[in-house]
Amino acid sequence: MSPKLRRVLQLFARLPGVGEKTAHRYVLHLLTTDPSVAEELGRAVSELHHVFQPCSVCNNLAEVGETPILCDICKDHKRDPSVLCVVAKVSDLLALERPGTLRGRYFVLGGLLSPLEGVGPEALPVPRLVERVRQGGVREVIIATPPSVDGEATALFLRRELGDLGVSITRIASGIPHGGDLEFIDPVTLGRALDGRKVI
């Protein structure tokens, strides 16, 4: 195989969820359809980092334009500023946006406490988060880190750091996926769902 082609295949295969086979399919597709598709893709990809930067308020992805750089959520005046949802990564924010029930704002940590990977508290932008809450206007902080060991430790850490700022701090419940049939839920999730039950 030509080294150039192999290089393109390797680049595709580096993407999450793309294996060698899929990389082949993508590249062959691009080679056999209208060349403008590949050109457009290439242009869009090479511009990505110039066009998008972290939002200066919440770290969500934002389109570069006027300064300060603000994401769509931070710009949206209809969003409730009194509810602040803390997530680990941008993809978690996007997942939480999907149900459309949360009308508050976000703060993206960019990672989780993880000493085994060398990530200590100093590596997280917690002072910025504290500052944001301290500025006022926030009534509730929802900690939406994942229910993993690192996610739980981060939640405990944030709870302590935000503890005496006079806001209410809540944690998302980890439970049964919507539409899930109890019989097909794994026991761990089901156990957690039972532990986290609420009076109705």
């Binding site: 406490l113 993880s114 000493p115 085994l116 200590g120 508290p121 060991v149 690192d150 430790a153 405990l156 850490f157 302590r160």
Partner: peptide, 21 residues
């Protein structure tokens, strides 16, 4: 969790608040 506690003891000492977590 156990290994993370151990690493935190090493990296941040026995009085660090994250050891509690």
């Amino acid at each position: 969790a156990q290994r993370s506690r151990q690493k935190t003891l090493e990296a941040r000492g026995i009085d660090a608040t994250d050891v509690d977590h």
